[in-house]
Computed example of a mutant assay.
Amino acid sequence: MYVCLCKRVSDNTIQQVVAQGARSWREVREQTGCATQCGKCACVGKSITRDAVAKELFGDADLSYAV
Rank of each mutant, 00 (worst) to 15 (best):
D51C: 12
I48P: 02
Q20C: 10
F58W: 06
L5N: 15
V3K: 00
C43F: 12
V9K: 05
Q20P: 03
C4Y: 02
N12E: 15
D62I: 09
D60Y: 04
A42E: 15
V9C: 08
E30T: 10
A22C: 11
A22K: 09
R23N: 10
R50L: 08
Y65L: 13
V3Y: 00
W25G: 04
S24I: 05
E30F: 08
Q37F: 14
G59M: 07
D51G: 10
E30P: 03
A22M: 07
R23M: 13
A52W: 01
T13K: 14
V28S: 10
G33Q: 13
T49E: 01
I48G: 01
Q31L: 15
V9E: 12
M1W: 01
R8K: 15
E56C: 13
A54Q: 11
D11N: 12
L5I: 15
R50P: 00
G21Q: 05
Q16T: 12
A19V: 04
V18H: 01
D62G: 07
A22G: 08
K46L: 05
L5W: 14
R8V: 11
C41E: 01
K7I: 01
D11F: 01
V9M: 09
C41A: 04
Q20K: 14
S24F: 08
D60V: 05
C4W: 01
D60W: 04
S24N: 07
V28P: 09
R23C: 10
A66W: 11
R50V: 02
A22I: 04
A22S: 11
S10W: 01
G45D: 01
C38A: 03
A19Q: 13
D51T: 11
Q16P: 02
A19K: 15
T36D: 14
S24K: 09
V9H: 06
R8W: 12
A66M: 12
V44E: 06
D11W: 04
I14A: 02
G21M: 06
Y2S: 10
I48N: 01
R29D: 06
G39A: 15
M1L: 10
W25Y: 13
E27F: 03
F58A: 05
W25N: 07
A19M: 10
C34R: 02
E27K: 06
G21E: 07
Q15D: 11
K55P: 02
I48L: 07
V28R: 08
Q31D: 09
Q31E: 14
R8S: 14
C6T: 07
V67M: 07
C4N: 02
F58N: 08
V9Y: 09
D62T: 08
C41D: 02
V18R: 00
T32S: 03
A22E: 07
V28Q: 05
E27W: 02
